[in-house]
Design a protein around this nucleic acid. Structure first.
Lengths: 222, 222
DNA sequence: TTATAATGGTTGCATTTGCAACGAATATAT
DNA sequence: ATATATTCGTTGCAAATGCAACCATTATAA
């Protein structure tokens, strides 16, 4: 049922039915269901598993030094969370909360970290897929850091748009955020973001409608 | 000669002489020397290796959409670069340039990605060390994203300081940046950073001398 | 020593941006 | 259908911050 979602994850993409079944077993995959508002972990214990969101949305956050909550990630369908902490068996004061009703596929890396004598070629391939997942994660985080490092909203937007444009090979693309999440991703205030988007549209640099954006002549001004 | 530097890298820490030798061979390690200003890669070709800086400092950057150069990383002694791109064999328009005279240990992940029939237990262990390196990298990038996501310089500094304080388990610590690099890391203007640091000192929240910082009562105000 | 470069602090100013409040439009639930 | 919640844009205002220019101090080189 969740087949399509699984195949979106690099761990399980392009596997035969038999291989998929083996992979799920290799990562000790078990499905669990949560209701809106449920907590997925105990803060006191280190993460023994990482998760793949099969349906719904979950949020990872930690308490800030001044008591506020720092949102670390909103994780939607097909995306994973906690891989690094799980692999490193690192303790971290993170809370994982289900924003909607959700289904999570919990997995662990025990078979990678504690290989037995029968570690086979396909085990190595699966371990490499896990590594590739982390590598992809660092590249995605790097993209975000590029954006966040820009000093002005305008520059952040230009970087953000050009990344999407490159990724899709097109001047026109849809982004997976609403304005609120977009502002969070860019690290700016929502209304200031709206204002800057309006300015850029006035200047003829971009056009947009809801999540659909079009780059017109981003190089022209500035 | 570079023994101490190697052992700082998770790939090579706590290895016997014999194991170290095997690890170097496993990653096809070869040393190369560069002069200040030398380029370490050809932009047109994908990265076939990742690097460990044995001495000196190198910089990774790419051309921005508007022709400016985006600095992606300053890599100092003992730190690595290009692991993700190398492992994924991903092409990316990055420039790698030596800021000083430098010595680089080039390595690759061929033995991980193309395991032969004799893939042994210690090969698995080394592959896992590589994975752990990536996992650590994502955690470090996450810390930086936490900081960059804050909207004010004050909040960025508070987050930055509390990370260091947690890491060293002390209210007093030394940071590895000069003011310029610190401003870049925090994603703010250097003089604005100096100004905010001065304010925080006036308010008795922190004290500092050069790279030596002391948190006094960061919780008090705000 | 002297000269030069690098580093860090200070400040005036213009601009940007966060913030709050509000309203319109749309979506969702009852 | 009606009510309610969500999303998005707009705007006035105050505060934060980028920017540039300058100076002091320290480090480095000649």
């Amino acid at each position: 049922m969740y087949q399509e979602i699984l195949t979106k994850c690099i761990l399980f993409s392009d596997l035969s039915k038999e291989e998929l079944s083996y992979a799920l077993q290799f990562f000790s995959a078990t499905e669990k269901f949560y209701e809106k508002g449920d907590f997925l972990n105990k803060v006191t214990a280190p993460l023994k598993s990482f998760g793949l969101v099969l349906s719904g949305t979950i949020q990872v956050y930690m308490d800030d030094i001044d008591g506020n909550q720092m949102i670390m990630a909103n994780v939607g369908e097909g995306d994973t969370f906690g891989e690094s902490l799980c692999f490193l068996q690192r303790e971290a004061p993170v809370y994982i909360c289900s924003l909607t009703d959700s289904a999570i596929l919990w997995m662990n890396t025990d078979r990678i970290k504690n290989p037995d004598a029968h570690f086979t070629y396909r085990d190595i391939v699966l371990a490499n897929r896990f590594t590739a997942m982390l590598a992809n994660r660092t590249l995605a985080m790097n993209d975000r850091i590029q954006i966040l490092s820009k000093l002005s909203i305008r520059d952040k937007l230009i970087t953000f748009f050009s990344q999407y444009s490159n990724r899709y090979g097109s001047q026109e693309f849809e982004i997976p955020f609403d304005r609120n999440d977009m502002a969070t991703y860019l690290g700016v205030n929502r209304s200031a973001l709206s204002r800057e988007l309006a300015h850029m549209r006035e200047e003829g640099i971009i056009d947009f409608h809801k999540n659909q954006f079009q780059i017109k002549n981003i190089f022209a001004n500035q």
